[in-house]
Design a binder for these strands. Sequence first.
DNA 1: TATGCATATGTTATCGATAACAGCGCAGCG
DNA 2: CGCTGCGCTGTTATCGATAACATATGCATA
Lengths: 350, 350
Amino acid sequence: MTGSSLKSGIGTRVLAPTMTDVAKRAGVSTMTVSRALRDGASIARETRDRIMQAVEDLGYVLDQSAGSLSSKRTGFVAALVPSINNSNFADTARGLTDALQGSGLQLLLSYTDYSVENEESLIESMLRRRPEGIVVTGGRHTARGRKLLENCSIPVIETWDLPSSPVNHVVGFSNAEASATLVRHLHAKGYRRIAFIGGTTNRDTRGADRRSGYESAMRDLGLTESRVMSFGTPPISMKQGGEAIVRLLEQWPDVEAAICVSDLSAFGALMECQRRGWKVPERIALAGFGDFEISGTCYPAITTVGVHCYDIGNSAGKLLLRAIEGERNKMPIAAETIITDYEVIAREST
Amino acid sequence: MTGSSLKSGIGTRVLAPTMTDVAKRAGVSTMTVSRALRDGASIARETRDRIMQAVEDLGYVLDQSAGSLSSKRTGFVAALVPSINNSNFADTARGLTDALQGSGLQLLLSYTDYSVENEESLIESMLRRRPEGIVVTGGRHTARGRKLLENCSIPVIETWDLPSSPVNHVVGFSNAEASATLVRHLHAKGYRRIAFIGGTTNRDTRGADRRSGYESAMRDLGLTESRVMSFGTPPISMKQGGEAIVRLLEQWPDVEAAICVSDLSAFGALMECQRRGWKVPERIALAGFGDFEISGTCYPAITTVGVHCYDIGNSAGKLLLRAIEGERNKMPIAAETIITDYEVIAREST
DNA sequence: TATGCATATGTTATCGATAACAGCGCAGCG
DNA sequence: CGCTGCGCTGTTATCGATAACATATGCATA
């Protein structure tokens, strides 16, 4: 008999109990145990109690990987975000988790570190585990990553962006347009010599989109001289934001306002200004992106673009549930694009 | 024949290809395919190429859940952190990921929202998927959660704490002792009327430990009047830190220094002071905990306790690898406790 | 009493891979 | 020439659960 029993000392460990062990102990078949451990199945109260007791006695834990092999349901969805150390994406993850709550689906989260190569390998290792749906951040992938997504035959959602040719579903917004809106807001407030601070590469595609949105908005407003300060590998840190603002004002001392690629770099810039006694917004106005908690708390509070991170995740989660439901009923839903809201939040820094 | 083929339109989707499909196409047995897809197995170069071509043609992705059923290796470890929107835990996750890099083990991350009840259900759903190891945050669990961990017969690591009776391995430090060290540091600098700002409940056990460390250190120093301002549900936000400092100074206007349960609340308190024109550290000195990026960047920079978050994760990851190796060789390693370092980082705010 | 149906449980086949062992061909060697 | 050993590939059994179908029992209804 394969036994239960646990660490009774080094080396004496026995195999974990299986459903067969539980069935034997409860005097029923494994099928009955299987039914007892899920709900909805018809089973006598007394039998279920006996089984539960056996489960308890043996310390049995269902082996879902075995179960999903026959049921074809793994009960999880995969989500890839660039970074978990970023409250924007953390909020999206939270929105996803909340949407999945009670659906029987679990979220398995991983982070790409803003690298599409990492993303590719994560997509593959996630798909190996047969998730029922997958949520990725952004619309840029490696060729192979994209192919994996296209061929995986489960619902795919790209978030935080509006890819020009989506793989499948999309929940996001135009970072370029949001950035342009911020430029127009500053312009309306009277600022003309507006600069942009961001990272040196396009690794952070949303950051790159924000820069291009800035550039096109400046052109549209007839402000031909665009001032882009690129500094540091994305995502740029608070500290790098501080260094960037110094360089910016060295290079273009006449700049009146600077838009930073994110609130974090804007905050770094703001603190550096305070350190140097440069008044914000009098000497230089500062704006960020993302409405992180910090930008509403700091003094002066930072003008930013509020993107609805939680909603992105939550909408993606709900859409995913519908899509997975569709798959299960063999009635796949058509690809959808959900565009989420954003708004300029004017604060003291501009 | 079970086919490959993908979205050719709604409803016409076919089942994902299996290893059998690949084997047929390459004219070999499934066993040979299985060998080709792993490394180390002896296989003819030409055969492998043919198989890889078939894999490519069909868009085949290995089904690991099927594989791990027979091999008894799922190739992943589970990690539970209180929150992902907290750079301390994000750093720990990063340390873990890095340690696991190249080991063939993948990290599956989930967050408990600082709730031991959530933790319990996450432990169970993780264990259902048969991870090869599990890392949890803290030493407090529900009774059932603890039992699950004790009986799961895989290596368990509790982090960020030094539980009095650990389940198995531990990688952490004493939050109480670290907090006490900070109190002594402030005392040495001449501060006497030192307060503590934290949340209203013990939900955040590490926060609670820091408070008790503060209290015992104060007693030890002969400073009998301890001033604890509890405000907000843990983890307390920046904003709540701001409100708490105001209440603190209302209640005890003579307070000279305040230790906040984390850098985030300390930052909130600092900004509120600036808003109100209260000079830091002249009117009130502020210290935090955790050495978040923000406390080194803000102005004035915040004195804090640097805990080696990344190292906690990294050490836990390395320990886990050794432990899993031990399990695989049927030579389980003995329970270890690794105590990580911390230090007071004195900055401008005190 | 016979019929029908719902409830409760068991039996058998199967999910998709891998472990363990077996077999085949060929090179090297005595 | 036959034996040994290695490199490569195939066969069979199996991992632990669930789907699908079969069976048994009890009760209501005609």
